[in-house]
Design a protein around this nucleic acid. Structure first.
Lengths: 245, 245
DNA sequence: CGTCTGCTTGAGCAAGATCAACTAGCGTGG
DNA sequence: CCACGCTAGTTGATCTTGCTCAAGCAGACG
């Protein structure tokens, strides 16, 4: 097999994604079944109404995992950022659908081909297992958030999480961004989506934003953009230290 | 290798646990590093204060996975029943500890030996991946429960889940139990543990029990035992159909 | 410049938390 | 075997947080 110019070589999530944790051979096989796709905001990526099963690695953008109930109740049960894996192998269709929270670039695999490769390549399976275990940890942390935290703590946690993950994605993109800076962050989620995520009403989310602004901990500039002015204070609130200010 | 009388042959979870989904060779290797242990109620099985990492398959009893916070808040993030797997491979210590909710029988593996075997045996790793994916699904369902359901729905869901899983464990034990019966079920969790599980206060749990009793849907006989008289009604409430009775 | 949608702000309400007795299993020891 | 006492559970009164309903506001886009 001749070495051909590799489309993965220039991939921005190359050294953080699933494919970075497998052998060169597995990466190569993975490359052969991979194709880049662009998905517009709002489209269902997989599960539910999506045609056929697919798996993806997020290259840029954010995917929300939504648990839908017949009666219209929605709960966002997870967010996947750049380099994260999306999909449910060996799947009896779970009730969770993956939807594009923002415009996406995905590295996508057909369900059949990927599951076949999974059978053939134990190292790929191991890498996936590790990722899934991390997702499980994250999901359990989120359980704590939903169950035990107040509205203020929830919103603070959410903002800190978004800030960290978006900054992270940006750092992976073009590292050199001075850490400790206060970059303007574009939230991948609308107020109502944040509410779905935190099990709050959008009005409550809005009020908590107002409170954080009043305290000078964040600033909002435009509908979906914000700046964290005082990260330490955010962390405090998030942990429930909540001084009676 | 001679065939010796196999301690696993008589195992009650033999045909439902992890070891049932692997090759004969892997099962054999697994058997070699397995040992039965009994754990009294309340003991930490793994994580946190437990000495050294171990993995286990639950033979009988119930394990609760608890997320502890410095400030004493507790959230039960999962329950593992007979045949379920307990442990976090490749683990940076997660904040979750596994504790015996009842007296337990475990089939236990030392962390080192098990992880080594995991490296050597892709089929074992695959079987584990499937289990973990199921845990992840369960965890995400639970997110919906905590986020979106009312106290009444939560308690109904909990009771239905316990009834199903305990009946299931019993069926695996000595099948032939007439289904459709209304067996007396011993809850593995106290009121306060149920509260930790559902993100409620124990008073609220107690009130919901009282309500279900008043409606004739359940009966309680003793502190931790109950009978489901009307499973259909329980399902209704659980889904939020909630007729204004 | 107007409209439309997403966001903000306000007033009142309800579910569940909190605080406080009180009761009932269950184990112990007389 | 029964009385005692301890702990888990129940029940009641009140309070708080976040939800609901209802306006009003502002950024994005034609």
């Amino acid at each position: 097999m001749r070495h051909v110019p590799n489309k993965c070589d220039s991939c921005v999530v190359r050294n953080r994604s699933l494919c970075s944790s497998v052998s060169a051979e597995s990466a190569c096989e993975l490359q052969r079944i991979a194709h880049r796709v662009r998905v517009p905001e709002g489209r269902v990526v997989t599960g539910g109404a999506a045609l056929g099963k697919t798996f993806s690695i997020v290259v840029s953008g954010v995917v929300k995992l939504v648990s839908n109930r017949p009666d219209g109740q929605r709960q966002i049960v997870g967010l996947q950022f750049a380099s994260d894996f999306v999909g449910r192998p060996f799947g009896e269709a779970s009730s969770v659908t993956a939807e594009a929270a923002t415009d996406l670039e995905l590295c996508s695999f057909s369900g059949h081909a990927f599951e076949e490769l999974l059978q053939k390549r134990p190292d790929l399976e191991r890498a996936l297992l590790r990722r899934i275990l991390n997702d499980l940890d994250a999901s359990r942390d989120w359980l704590f958030l939903l169950g035990r935290k107040s509205a203020g703590e929830k919103v603070a946690t959410f903002l800190a999480m978004i800030a960290a993950r978006i900054a992270d994605a940006a750092a992976g993109d073009r590292s050199g961004l001075k850490s400790g800076a206060m970059p303007v962050i574009r939230s991948p989620l609308s107020r109502s989506e944040i509410a779905d995520c935190l099990s709050l009403r959008l009005e409550t989310v809005s009020r908590q934003f107002a409170l954080l602004k009043a305290r000078g901990i964040i600033e909002t500039t435009g509908r979906r953009t914000f700046v964290v002015k005082d990260y330490a204070a955010l962390k405090q609130i998030m942990e429930g230290v909540e001084a009676a200010a």
